[in-house]
Amino acid sequence: MSDSDIALRLEGLQKWFPITGGLLQKTVGYVYAVDDATFDIKKGETVALVGESGSGKSTVGLVINQLERATGGRIFYNGKEISNLKGKDLNAYRSKIQMVFQDPQASMDPRMRLKDAIIEVMKAHRIEGDVYKKAVEIMERVGLSEEHLYRYPHELSGGQRQRAVIARALSLNPEFIILDEPTASLDVSVQAQVLELLRELQRKYGYTYLLITHNLAVVRYISSRTVVMYRGFWVEKSTTKRLFKSAAHPYTLALLSSVPIPEPGAVKRDIILQGEPSNPTKRATLCPFAERCPLIMPICKEKMPPIRELEQDHFVRCWLEH
C-alpha cells in the first residue's frame, strides 16, 4: 500500500482527560480515554472502529476532528501532520473532515430551519456561488427535497433528521466523514435507509468513512476494514472479511459471540464474558483485557502483550500464539 493512498494515519494516538480536584483545581489524575490508537484509513474506504462504551472509540473521532487535542501521538491527513493546526489551516482541515453524531436531534440547533443551518455552514467557510441552489442539490443527494429546507429539526422524522445532519456535513464538500454511531438511535427499517444512503454516497462521490460503532452487524455490512478497541488500546485490526471469519483476539471473539443473531437456533460460539471493563482512571500497564479474558495466561499478568502480524493486514495485540 503506497502512502499516497492513505487518507488518514494515526500513530500511537493518546488522549488523557485530566481530573481536577481541590480548591485550586489541580490535576489529580487522568482518565486514560485513548492510550494507543494506531491505524490507517485508505482513500475511499470505510474503516470501522469498534468497541464498547469506555473503549475510547468516540474520543478518537473527536481528536481526529480536533474538537479535542491529542495528548500524544501523531495524526496525518493526506501525509500532513495536523495535530498543531490553528486558525485558517484548522478551518480548512475541518471543512475536509466532517462529523455525523449519533443523536441527530441533539446535533441540530432546535431553533433553526435546515436552510439556515446549512447555508450558515457554507457561508462560514466562504463557499462561493448560489448557496441556496447548492443546499437544494445536497438535500436531493441525501434523499430529501427542497421543501425540507424550510423545516425545523423537530418537524422531521428520525430518519429524515439523520439525513439532514448528513446533508449539513456534505455541504462543505468534505473528503472524509466521521460517522459516530450514525444509526444507533434509529429504528431497524430507518437504519437500513441510512446505511443504504451512506453506501450510495460513497459509491457516487468517493467519500472516506470512519465508522465508530458498537454494532457489529452494521460493521459487517458497511466497512472494508475494522479496528477493535478495548479500554483505549486497539487490540485487533484487519479486513472486515477476515476479522469476522477468523478473529484472533479473545475480546473480538467475545464481542462476536455476544451479538444476538436474528435466527432462532443459530449455531455460534458461546463466550460470555464475566465482569465489566474497569475504571479508566488507572493506566493499563498490562494487557487491558486481562481483567476479563477467559483465556488468560500467566504471562498476561507480567508484561504488555506484543503486537503480532498474523497474516498480511491482520494485527493483534495478544500473548496467545495463533
Binding site: 474538537l67 462529523m99 453524531f101 443523536d103 440547533d109 450558515e120 462560514a124 445532519v165 449539513r168 462543505l172
Partner: peptide
Amino acid sequence: EKLYVKASKSLGLSNFR
C-alpha cells in the same frame, strides 16, 4: 454542553458565531 454546539464547532463555525 449540548451536542449541537459541538457539532457546529466541528463544522468549523467560529466561537463568536
